[in-house]
Design a protein around this nucleic acid. Structure first.
Lengths: 230, 230
DNA sequence: ACCCCGAATATTGTCGACAAAACGGCCTCT
DNA sequence: AGAGGCCGTTTTGTCGACAATATTCGGGGT
Protein backbone atom coordinates (compact mmCIF):
# COMPACT_ATOMS: atom_id res chain seq x y z
CA UNK A 1 0.00 0.00 0.00
CA UNK A 2 1.33 3.34 -1.02
CA UNK A 3 1.45 6.33 1.22
CA UNK A 4 -1.10 8.19 -0.87
CA UNK A 5 -3.66 5.43 -0.49
CA UNK A 6 -3.14 5.03 3.19
CA UNK A 7 -4.24 8.55 3.98
CA UNK A 8 -7.34 9.81 2.23
CA UNK A 9 -6.90 13.16 3.95
CA UNK A 10 -6.18 14.74 0.58
CA UNK A 11 -9.44 13.45 -0.88
CA UNK A 12 -12.10 15.94 -1.80
CA UNK A 13 -14.47 16.88 0.99
CA UNK A 14 -17.68 14.91 0.58
CA UNK A 15 -19.81 17.67 2.00
CA UNK A 16 -20.00 21.46 1.79
CA UNK A 17 -19.38 21.74 5.48
CA UNK A 18 -16.06 19.94 5.12
CA UNK A 19 -14.88 22.11 2.29
CA UNK A 20 -15.76 25.15 4.35
CA UNK A 21 -13.84 23.67 7.25
CA UNK A 22 -10.72 23.34 5.10
CA UNK A 23 -11.02 26.79 3.60
CA UNK A 24 -11.68 28.55 6.88
CA UNK A 25 -8.94 26.59 8.59
CA UNK A 26 -6.37 27.61 6.01
CA UNK A 27 -7.55 31.21 6.11
CA UNK A 28 -7.12 31.30 9.87
CA UNK A 29 -3.87 29.35 10.09
CA UNK A 30 -2.19 31.31 7.32
CA UNK A 31 -3.33 34.62 8.75
CA UNK A 32 -5.82 35.71 6.08
CA UNK A 33 -8.27 36.10 8.92
CA UNK A 34 -6.54 37.91 11.74
CA UNK A 35 -6.06 36.48 15.19
CA UNK A 36 -8.90 37.51 17.49
CA UNK A 37 -11.15 38.64 14.65
CA UNK A 38 -14.92 38.31 14.91
CA UNK A 39 -16.45 35.74 12.58
CA UNK A 40 -19.86 36.91 11.37
CA UNK A 41 -21.93 34.16 9.86
CA UNK A 42 -23.80 36.17 7.17
CA UNK A 43 -20.60 37.76 5.95
CA UNK A 44 -18.67 34.49 5.76
CA UNK A 45 -21.58 32.68 4.15
CA UNK A 46 -21.74 35.26 1.40
CA UNK A 47 -17.96 35.22 0.99
CA UNK A 48 -17.84 31.46 0.47
CA UNK A 49 -21.08 31.26 -1.45
CA UNK A 50 -23.09 29.02 0.86
CA UNK A 51 -25.83 29.32 3.45
CA UNK A 52 -25.33 29.63 7.16
CA UNK A 53 -26.09 26.00 7.94
CA UNK A 54 -22.89 24.37 6.73
CA UNK A 55 -20.96 27.38 7.92
CA UNK A 56 -22.10 26.91 11.51
CA UNK A 57 -21.12 23.29 11.17
CA UNK A 58 -17.62 24.28 10.08
CA UNK A 59 -17.32 26.74 12.95
CA UNK A 60 -18.19 24.04 15.44
CA UNK A 61 -15.46 21.82 14.06
CA UNK A 62 -12.98 24.67 14.16
CA UNK A 63 -13.90 25.10 17.79
CA UNK A 64 -12.93 21.49 18.42
CA UNK A 65 -9.59 22.24 16.81
CA UNK A 66 -9.01 25.23 19.06
CA UNK A 67 -9.02 27.71 16.20
CA UNK A 68 -12.15 29.59 17.21
CA UNK A 69 -13.94 30.21 20.49
CA UNK A 70 -17.70 30.54 20.64
CA UNK A 71 -19.88 32.21 23.24
CA UNK A 72 -23.65 31.63 23.23
CA UNK A 73 -25.64 34.35 21.50
CA UNK A 74 -22.46 36.26 20.79
CA UNK A 75 -20.90 34.30 17.96
CA UNK A 76 -17.40 33.11 17.17
CA UNK A 77 -13.96 34.68 17.23
CA UNK A 78 -10.62 33.50 15.91
CA UNK A 79 -8.46 32.26 18.76
CA UNK A 80 -6.27 34.87 20.43
CA UNK A 81 -2.88 33.15 19.98
CA UNK A 82 -1.25 35.12 22.74
CA UNK A 83 2.22 34.22 23.96
CA UNK A 84 0.67 32.74 27.06
CA UNK A 85 -1.52 30.44 24.99
CA UNK A 86 1.51 29.32 23.00
CA UNK A 87 3.32 28.37 26.18
CA UNK A 88 0.22 26.39 27.13
CA UNK A 89 0.38 24.62 23.80
CA UNK A 90 4.01 23.65 24.37
CA UNK A 91 3.03 22.13 27.71
CA UNK A 92 0.17 20.14 26.24
CA UNK A 93 2.40 18.92 23.44
CA UNK A 94 5.05 17.81 25.89
CA UNK A 95 2.59 15.53 27.64
CA UNK A 96 0.86 14.30 24.52
CA UNK A 97 3.77 13.90 22.13
CA UNK A 98 5.99 12.39 24.78
CA UNK A 99 3.46 9.59 24.90
CA UNK A 100 3.27 9.30 21.10
CA UNK A 101 7.02 8.78 20.99
CA UNK A 102 6.85 6.14 23.70
CA UNK A 103 4.14 4.20 21.92
CA UNK A 104 5.59 4.67 18.45
CA UNK A 105 8.74 2.87 19.58
CA UNK A 106 6.81 -0.37 19.79
CA UNK A 107 4.11 0.16 17.18
CA UNK A 108 5.95 1.60 14.18
CA UNK A 109 6.76 -0.83 11.41
CA UNK A 110 10.24 -1.16 9.99
CA UNK A 111 8.95 0.40 6.81
CA UNK A 112 7.63 3.42 8.69
CA UNK A 113 10.96 3.83 10.43
CA UNK A 114 12.74 3.75 7.08
CA UNK A 115 10.35 6.34 5.69
CA UNK A 116 10.92 8.52 8.71
CA UNK A 117 14.68 8.27 8.28
CA UNK A 118 14.26 9.26 4.67
CA UNK A 119 12.19 12.25 5.73
CA UNK A 120 14.95 13.42 8.03
CA UNK A 121 17.48 13.16 5.20
CA UNK A 122 15.15 15.27 3.08
CA UNK A 123 14.91 17.77 5.89
CA UNK A 124 18.72 17.84 6.17
CA UNK A 125 18.97 18.84 2.53
CA UNK A 126 16.28 21.50 2.98
CA UNK A 127 17.97 22.96 6.02
CA UNK A 128 21.29 23.15 4.17
CA UNK A 129 19.79 24.69 1.06
CA UNK A 130 17.39 27.24 2.42
CA UNK A 131 19.43 28.16 5.46
CA UNK A 132 16.86 26.42 7.60
CA UNK A 133 14.21 29.02 7.17
CA UNK A 134 11.48 26.84 5.77
CA UNK A 135 12.18 23.81 7.90
CA UNK A 136 9.51 24.57 10.41
CA UNK A 137 6.88 25.30 7.80
CA UNK A 138 6.59 21.65 6.77
CA UNK A 139 3.27 20.18 7.73
CA UNK A 140 1.19 17.06 7.61
CA UNK A 141 3.09 14.08 6.27
CA UNK A 142 6.18 16.23 5.88
CA UNK A 143 6.28 17.00 9.58
CA UNK A 144 8.36 14.80 11.87
CA UNK A 145 6.07 15.18 14.87
CA UNK A 146 2.97 14.53 12.80
CA UNK A 147 4.42 11.33 11.40
CA UNK A 148 5.24 9.93 14.81
CA UNK A 149 1.83 10.69 16.24
CA UNK A 150 0.24 9.31 13.10
CA UNK A 151 2.01 6.00 13.60
CA UNK A 152 1.76 5.69 17.38
CA UNK A 153 -1.01 3.11 17.12
CA UNK A 154 -3.33 4.90 19.52
CA UNK A 155 -6.18 6.46 17.60
CA UNK A 156 -7.40 8.62 20.46
CA UNK A 157 -3.92 10.01 20.98
CA UNK A 158 -3.36 10.49 17.27
CA UNK A 159 -6.56 12.49 17.08
CA UNK A 160 -5.61 14.69 20.03
CA UNK A 161 -2.25 15.51 18.44
CA UNK A 162 -2.89 15.50 14.68
CA UNK A 163 -6.40 16.97 14.68
CA UNK A 164 -7.23 18.78 17.91
CA UNK A 165 -3.96 20.61 18.49
CA UNK A 166 -2.05 20.38 15.25
CA UNK A 167 -3.54 23.36 13.44
CA UNK A 168 -2.92 25.62 16.40
CA UNK A 169 0.71 24.57 16.28
CA UNK A 170 0.83 25.20 12.55
CA UNK A 171 -0.65 28.65 13.15
CA UNK A 172 2.15 29.37 15.58
CA UNK A 173 4.73 28.39 13.00
CA UNK A 174 3.23 30.79 10.50
CA UNK A 175 3.45 33.73 12.83
CA UNK A 176 6.77 33.13 14.48
CA UNK A 177 9.66 32.22 12.25
CA UNK A 178 12.27 30.18 14.02
CA UNK A 179 15.44 31.72 15.29
CA UNK A 180 18.64 31.27 13.37
CA UNK A 181 20.41 28.08 14.28
CA UNK A 182 17.38 26.46 15.89
CA UNK A 183 16.54 24.36 12.81
CA UNK A 184 19.94 22.67 12.91
CA UNK A 185 19.59 21.86 16.58
CA UNK A 186 16.04 20.67 16.08
CA UNK A 187 17.17 18.38 13.28
CA UNK A 188 19.85 16.85 15.51
CA UNK A 189 17.25 16.27 18.21
CA UNK A 190 14.93 14.68 15.69
CA UNK A 191 17.72 12.30 14.66
CA UNK A 192 18.27 11.22 18.23
CA UNK A 193 14.58 10.54 18.68
CA UNK A 194 14.63 8.48 15.50
CA UNK A 195 17.55 6.45 16.85
CA UNK A 196 15.63 5.70 20.03
CA UNK A 197 12.65 4.61 17.95
CA UNK A 198 14.87 2.38 15.83
CA UNK A 199 16.21 0.85 19.02
CA UNK A 200 12.59 0.25 20.08
CA UNK A 201 13.39 2.13 23.25
CA UNK A 202 10.09 3.79 24.15
CA UNK A 203 11.24 5.16 27.45
CA UNK A 204 14.17 6.98 25.90
CA UNK A 205 12.12 8.16 22.94
CA UNK A 206 9.68 9.80 25.33
CA UNK A 207 12.42 11.50 27.32
CA UNK A 208 14.08 12.82 24.17
CA UNK A 209 10.80 14.02 22.69
CA UNK A 210 9.92 15.90 25.84
CA UNK A 211 13.35 17.50 26.03
CA UNK A 212 13.06 18.43 22.39
CA UNK A 213 9.73 20.18 22.90
CA UNK A 214 11.04 21.90 25.99
CA UNK A 215 14.00 23.13 23.95
CA UNK A 216 11.62 24.55 21.36
CA UNK A 217 9.74 26.29 24.11
CA UNK A 218 12.94 27.68 25.60
CA UNK A 219 13.94 29.00 22.18
CA UNK A 220 10.55 30.66 21.90
CA UNK A 221 10.79 32.25 25.31
CA UNK A 222 14.32 33.46 24.58
CA UNK A 223 13.06 34.98 21.37
CA UNK A 224 10.31 36.76 23.26
CA UNK A 225 12.81 38.10 25.74
CA UNK A 226 15.10 39.42 23.03
CA UNK A 227 12.19 41.11 21.26
CA UNK A 228 11.11 42.72 24.48
CA UNK A 229 14.57 44.18 25.01
CA UNK A 230 15.09 45.58 21.58
CA UNK B 1 -13.75 38.08 40.16
CA UNK B 2 -15.17 35.32 42.31
CA UNK B 3 -14.97 31.62 41.59
CA UNK B 4 -18.70 31.38 41.08
CA UNK B 5 -18.55 33.95 38.34
CA UNK B 6 -15.55 32.37 36.69
CA UNK B 7 -17.27 29.04 36.28
CA UNK B 8 -20.89 29.16 35.18
CA UNK B 9 -20.78 25.45 34.42
CA UNK B 10 -23.75 24.81 36.66
CA UNK B 11 -25.79 27.60 35.08
CA UNK B 12 -28.71 26.79 32.84
CA UNK B 13 -27.85 26.23 29.19
CA UNK B 14 -28.42 29.49 27.34
CA UNK B 15 -29.36 27.79 24.10
CA UNK B 16 -31.37 24.79 23.03
CA UNK B 17 -28.30 23.24 21.51
CA UNK B 18 -26.55 23.28 24.87
CA UNK B 19 -29.45 21.73 26.70
CA UNK B 20 -29.55 19.01 24.07
CA UNK B 21 -25.82 18.52 24.51
CA UNK B 22 -26.25 17.95 28.23
CA UNK B 23 -29.21 15.62 27.82
CA UNK B 24 -27.63 13.54 25.09
CA UNK B 25 -24.35 13.41 26.96
CA UNK B 26 -25.99 12.08 30.08
CA UNK B 27 -28.03 9.60 28.08
CA UNK B 28 -24.89 8.27 26.44
CA UNK B 29 -22.62 8.29 29.48
CA UNK B 30 -25.19 6.64 31.73
CA UNK B 31 -26.00 4.03 29.16
CA UNK B 32 -29.55 5.03 28.25
CA UNK B 33 -28.36 5.08 24.68
CA UNK B 34 -26.34 1.96 24.08
CA UNK B 35 -22.70 1.94 23.07
CA UNK B 36 -22.37 1.75 19.29
CA UNK B 37 -25.98 2.67 18.63
CA UNK B 38 -26.99 4.65 15.56
CA UNK B 39 -28.19 8.17 16.23
CA UNK B 40 -30.94 9.13 13.79
CA UNK B 41 -31.61 12.83 13.68
CA UNK B 42 -35.38 12.80 13.04
CA UNK B 43 -35.95 10.29 15.82
CA UNK B 44 -33.88 12.19 18.38
CA UNK B 45 -35.36 15.53 17.37
CA UNK B 46 -38.84 14.20 17.99
CA UNK B 47 -37.79 12.58 21.25
CA UNK B 48 -36.40 15.81 22.66
CA UNK B 49 -39.02 18.04 21.09
CA UNK B 50 -36.82 20.20 18.89
CA UNK B 51 -35.87 20.52 15.26
CA UNK B 52 -32.85 18.97 13.61
CA UNK B 53 -30.76 22.15 13.60
CA UNK B 54 -29.82 22.36 17.29
CA UNK B 55 -29.60 18.59 17.35
CA UNK B 56 -26.90 18.51 14.70
CA UNK B 57 -25.11 21.18 16.69
CA UNK B 58 -25.19 19.02 19.79
CA UNK B 59 -23.94 16.01 17.85
CA UNK B 60 -20.95 17.99 16.61
CA UNK B 61 -20.05 18.94 20.13
CA UNK B 62 -20.42 15.38 21.30
CA UNK B 63 -18.03 14.41 18.54
CA UNK B 64 -15.48 16.83 19.99
CA UNK B 65 -15.93 15.06 23.32
CA UNK B 66 -15.31 11.64 21.78
CA UNK B 67 -18.79 10.39 22.58
CA UNK B 68 -19.99 10.00 19.00
CA UNK B 69 -18.32 9.41 15.67
CA UNK B 70 -19.69 10.85 12.46
CA UNK B 71 -19.18 9.76 8.87
CA UNK B 72 -20.27 12.01 5.98
CA UNK B 73 -23.65 11.09 4.52
CA UNK B 74 -23.96 8.24 6.97
CA UNK B 75 -24.76 9.94 10.23
CA UNK B 76 -23.60 9.55 13.79
CA UNK B 77 -23.06 6.58 16.11
CA UNK B 78 -22.35 6.38 19.81
CA UNK B 79 -18.70 5.60 20.41
CA UNK B 80 -17.80 1.93 20.57
CA UNK B 81 -16.14 1.90 24.02
CA UNK B 82 -14.27 -1.29 23.31
CA UNK B 83 -11.61 -2.53 25.68
CA UNK B 84 -8.98 -1.40 23.20
CA UNK B 85 -10.36 2.12 23.20
CA UNK B 86 -10.32 2.17 26.98
CA UNK B 87 -6.65 1.22 27.00
CA UNK B 88 -6.08 4.07 24.57
CA UNK B 89 -7.85 6.40 26.97
CA UNK B 90 -5.60 5.32 29.83
CA UNK B 91 -2.56 6.13 27.72
CA UNK B 92 -3.84 9.56 26.76
CA UNK B 93 -4.68 10.30 30.37
CA UNK B 94 -1.23 9.27 31.52
CA UNK B 95 0.37 11.85 29.24
CA UNK B 96 -2.17 14.58 29.87
CA UNK B 97 -2.84 14.20 33.58
CA UNK B 98 0.81 13.66 34.35
CA UNK B 99 1.32 17.16 33.05
CA UNK B 100 -1.66 18.55 34.99
CA UNK B 101 -0.13 17.24 38.22
CA UNK B 102 3.24 18.75 37.37
CA UNK B 103 1.75 22.16 36.68
CA UNK B 104 -0.73 22.05 39.55
CA UNK B 105 2.18 21.73 41.97
CA UNK B 106 3.18 25.30 41.22
CA UNK B 107 -0.13 26.87 40.29
CA UNK B 108 -2.55 25.64 42.95
CA UNK B 109 -3.31 28.07 45.74
CA UNK B 110 -3.02 27.07 49.38
CA UNK B 111 -6.79 27.28 49.60
CA UNK B 112 -7.20 24.88 46.71
CA UNK B 113 -4.78 22.45 48.33
CA UNK B 114 -6.77 22.61 51.55
CA UNK B 115 -10.00 21.97 49.66
CA UNK B 116 -8.40 19.03 47.90
CA UNK B 117 -7.26 17.57 51.22
CA UNK B 118 -10.79 17.96 52.53
CA UNK B 119 -12.11 16.17 49.46
CA UNK B 120 -9.83 13.22 50.13
CA UNK B 121 -11.04 13.02 53.72
CA UNK B 122 -14.58 12.98 52.42
CA UNK B 123 -13.63 10.20 50.04
CA UNK B 124 -12.04 8.27 52.89
CA UNK B 125 -15.34 8.31 54.77
CA UNK B 126 -17.22 7.26 51.62
CA UNK B 127 -14.87 4.36 50.97
CA UNK B 128 -15.22 3.17 54.54
CA UNK B 129 -19.00 3.45 54.57
CA UNK B 130 -20.01 2.12 51.21
CA UNK B 131 -17.26 -0.46 50.93
CA UNK B 132 -15.67 1.66 48.24
CA UNK B 133 -18.24 0.87 45.64
CA UNK B 134 -19.31 4.39 44.81
CA UNK B 135 -15.90 5.96 45.10
CA UNK B 136 -15.20 5.86 41.41
CA UNK B 137 -18.60 7.26 40.50
CA UNK B 138 -17.80 10.72 41.81
CA UNK B 139 -17.56 13.24 39.05
CA UNK B 140 -16.94 16.88 38.31
CA UNK B 141 -15.87 18.85 41.33
CA UNK B 142 -16.08 15.70 43.45
CA UNK B 143 -13.45 13.95 41.35
CA UNK B 144 -9.82 14.17 42.43
CA UNK B 145 -8.44 14.07 38.90
CA UNK B 146 -10.90 16.68 37.69
CA UNK B 147 -9.98 19.04 40.50
CA UNK B 148 -6.28 18.87 39.72
CA UNK B 149 -6.76 19.47 36.02
CA UNK B 150 -9.18 22.25 36.79
CA UNK B 151 -6.56 24.02 38.88
CA UNK B 152 -3.47 23.33 36.76
CA UNK B 153 -3.46 26.86 35.39
CA UNK B 154 -3.23 25.80 31.76
CA UNK B 155 -6.56 26.41 30.07
CA UNK B 156 -5.73 24.39 26.97
CA UNK B 157 -4.71 21.42 29.09
CA UNK B 158 -7.71 21.80 31.37
CA UNK B 159 -9.98 21.71 28.35
CA UNK B 160 -8.32 18.59 26.94
CA UNK B 161 -8.75 16.76 30.25
CA UNK B 162 -11.99 18.12 31.72
CA UNK B 163 -13.97 18.56 28.50
CA UNK B 164 -12.55 16.53 25.62
CA UNK B 165 -11.77 13.29 27.43
CA UNK B 166 -13.57 13.49 30.74
CA UNK B 167 -16.96 12.23 29.64
CA UNK B 168 -15.44 9.20 27.97
CA UNK B 169 -13.73 8.40 31.24
CA UNK B 170 -16.97 8.86 33.13
CA UNK B 171 -18.67 6.52 30.67
CA UNK B 172 -16.05 3.90 31.43
CA UNK B 173 -16.71 4.24 35.13
CA UNK B 174 -20.40 3.66 34.60
CA UNK B 175 -19.86 0.43 32.73
CA UNK B 176 -17.03 -1.11 34.69
CA UNK B 177 -17.36 -1.07 38.44
CA UNK B 178 -14.01 -1.11 40.15
CA UNK B 179 -12.55 -4.26 41.58
CA UNK B 180 -12.71 -4.90 45.28
CA UNK B 181 -9.82 -3.32 47.10
CA UNK B 182 -8.87 -1.01 44.28
CA UNK B 183 -10.64 2.02 45.83
CA UNK B 184 -8.51 1.75 48.96
CA UNK B 185 -5.33 1.58 46.96
CA UNK B 186 -6.45 4.43 44.71
CA UNK B 187 -7.19 6.57 47.74
CA UNK B 188 -3.70 5.92 49.11
CA UNK B 189 -2.21 6.90 45.78
CA UNK B 190 -4.32 10.04 45.71
CA UNK B 191 -3.00 10.99 49.13
CA UNK B 192 0.57 10.62 47.98
CA UNK B 193 -0.08 12.82 44.99
CA UNK B 194 -1.61 15.42 47.29
CA UNK B 195 1.49 15.31 49.48
CA UNK B 196 3.69 15.97 46.47
CA UNK B 197 1.46 18.89 45.50
CA UNK B 198 1.64 20.29 49.02
CA UNK B 199 5.42 20.04 48.83
CA UNK B 200 5.22 21.96 45.54
CA UNK B 201 7.16 19.10 43.96
CA UNK B 202 5.89 19.04 40.38
CA UNK B 203 8.30 16.42 39.16
CA UNK B 204 7.26 13.94 41.83
CA UNK B 205 3.57 14.78 41.41
CA UNK B 206 3.82 13.90 37.74
CA UNK B 207 5.60 10.62 38.41
CA UNK B 208 3.05 9.62 41.04
CA UNK B 209 0.11 10.60 38.87
CA UNK B 210 1.43 8.56 35.97
CA UNK B 211 2.04 5.54 38.17
CA UNK B 212 -1.44 5.92 39.61
CA UNK B 213 -3.05 5.92 36.17
CA UNK B 214 -0.93 2.99 35.08
CA UNK B 215 -2.07 1.13 38.20
CA UNK B 216 -5.70 1.80 37.26
CA UNK B 217 -4.99 0.48 33.83
CA UNK B 218 -3.31 -2.62 35.22
CA UNK B 219 -6.30 -3.25 37.45
CA UNK B 220 -8.57 -2.93 34.44
CA UNK B 221 -6.49 -5.34 32.38
CA UNK B 222 -6.37 -7.81 35.24
CA UNK B 223 -10.14 -7.59 35.53
CA UNK B 224 -10.46 -8.28 31.82
CA UNK B 225 -8.22 -11.28 32.14
CA UNK B 226 -10.19 -12.71 35.02
CA UNK B 227 -13.45 -12.25 33.19
CA UNK B 228 -12.02 -13.96 30.14
CA UNK B 229 -11.05 -16.99 32.21
CA UNK B 230 -14.38 -17.36 33.94
C1' DA C 1 -18.47 66.28 30.15
C1' DC C 2 -19.86 61.82 31.62
C1' DC C 3 -23.02 58.14 32.45
C1' DC C 4 -27.21 55.80 31.90
C1' DC C 5 -31.02 54.45 29.19
C1' DG C 6 -33.84 53.17 25.06
C1' DA C 7 -34.70 52.51 20.18
C1' DA C 8 -32.79 50.89 15.76
C1' DT C 9 -29.83 47.67 13.68
C1' DA C 10 -27.26 43.62 13.13
C1' DT C 11 -26.29 38.94 14.42
C1' DT C 12 -27.29 34.58 16.32
C1' DG C 13 -30.69 30.72 17.35
C1' DT C 14 -34.41 27.95 15.62
C1' DC C 15 -37.54 25.99 12.43
C1' DG C 16 -39.65 23.57 8.36
C1' DA C 17 -39.03 22.23 3.54
C1' DC C 18 -36.46 20.56 -0.41
C1' DA C 19 -32.45 17.96 -2.69
C1' DA C 20 -29.09 14.38 -2.60
C1' DA C 21 -27.26 10.38 -0.89
C1' DA C 22 -27.40 5.95 1.57
C1' DC C 23 -30.06 1.93 3.06
C1' DG C 24 -33.18 -2.02 2.45
C1' DG C 25 -36.14 -5.08 0.10
C1' DC C 26 -37.41 -7.27 -4.04
C1' DC C 27 -36.79 -9.23 -8.31
C1' DT C 28 -34.16 -11.32 -11.90
C1' DC C 29 -30.51 -13.93 -13.79
C1' DT C 30 -27.01 -17.46 -13.55
C1' DA D 1 -29.81 -21.15 -3.98
C1' DG D 2 -26.88 -17.25 -4.26
C1' DA D 3 -25.24 -12.91 -6.45
C1' DG D 4 -26.16 -8.73 -8.42
C1' DG D 5 -28.89 -4.88 -9.90
C1' DC D 6 -33.20 -1.96 -9.60
C1' DC D 7 -36.51 0.80 -7.10
C1' DG D 8 -38.88 2.76 -2.97
C1' DT D 9 -37.93 4.43 1.55
C1' DT D 10 -35.36 6.53 4.97
C1' DT D 11 -31.83 9.59 6.44
C1' DT D 12 -28.57 13.18 5.84
C1' DG D 13 -27.11 17.73 3.66
C1' DT D 14 -28.53 22.28 2.39
C1' DC D 15 -31.29 26.29 2.10
C1' DG D 16 -34.18 30.45 3.19
C1' DA D 17 -37.26 32.66 6.56
C1' DC D 18 -38.69 33.93 11.22
C1' DA D 19 -37.82 34.77 16.30
C1' DA D 20 -34.81 35.97 20.03
C1' DT D 21 -30.83 38.03 21.66
C1' DA D 22 -26.85 41.09 21.52
C1' DT D 23 -24.71 45.36 19.80
C1' DT D 24 -24.69 50.08 18.39
C1' DC D 25 -26.00 54.68 18.23
C1' DG D 26 -28.32 58.64 19.79
C1' DG D 27 -30.79 61.31 23.43
C1' DG D 28 -31.64 62.80 28.04
C1' DG D 29 -30.33 63.51 32.72
C1' DT D 30 -26.96 64.60 36.48
Amino acid sequence: MTLAQRKPSSSQPATLSERLLDQLQDAIVEGDIASGEKLREPELAKRFGTSRGPLRDALRRLEARRLVTTTPNAGARVVALSNEQLIELFEVREGLEGMTARLAATSMTDQQLEDLEELLMLHAREVGRKKGREYFRQHGDLDFHFRIADACGNELLRHAVCVDHYQLMRMYRFKHSARKGRPHRALREHRRILEALQDRDGELAEILMRRHIRASRDAFETQLHEEALG
